[in-house]
């Protein structure tokens, strides 16, 4: 007998966006408030895990056609690349740069290369978590 989990799936559809928004908020708040790439990444993968609980593996793979192993690589490239970018300017490895930029919609915005580094962390955390969970899940 197939169980009917329409309530679970409907609730998932609604909460998923709230969780993802919260995780993105945590990610961007990292410089001034508690948060950052690590917790943001964990929260995002938490949202994907909720999706996995409500639906099955194939459906989720259709919605998000991502190879998470590559995501780890891309994340590492972001982080190490940001660090190595300093080498081009003959500054010590991982030296960051920041400035205030006047963006068309957002106005005066403080931009910092540490965000790029954190993006790398964010991607690696999602990649690692999802690789672990999917590998264990697929294992018969």
């Amino acid at each position: 007998m197939k169980t009917n989990d329409v309530i679970l799936q409907t609730v998932t559809k609604i909460t998923l966006f709230i969780i993802i928004l919260f995780s993105i908020h945590l990610f961007f708040a990292g410089h001034y408030y508690p948060g950052g790439g690590f917790i943001g990444g964990l929260m995002t993968s938490g949202a994907i895990v909720l999706l996995l609980l409500a639906y099955d593996m194939k459906t989720v793979a259709n919605i998000l056609p991502i190879d998470y192993k590559y995501m780890i690589g891309v994340g590492l490239l972001f982080s190490v690349g940001t660090g190595a970018g300093a080498l081009l300017f003959d500054a010590p490895f991982l030296t960051h740069a920041h400035s205030h930029v006047l963006l068309p919609l957002l106005g005066d915005t403080a931009l910092h290369t540490a965000v790029l580094f954190d993006t790398g962390v964010y991607l690696v955390v999602i990649g690692v978590t999802m690789t672990i969970i999917q590998t264990i899940g697929e294992d018969e």
Binding site: K69, Y70, I72, G73, L76, L77, V80, A84, F93
Partner: peptide, 17 residues
């Protein structure tokens, strides 16, 4: 002095792909 760390690190990352 960071090159002996950085070169294998980049190589390791590219090798994932």
């Amino acid at each position: 002095l960071i090159l002996p760390i950085l070169i294998p690190l980049f190589a390791g990352i590219f090798l994932i792909f």
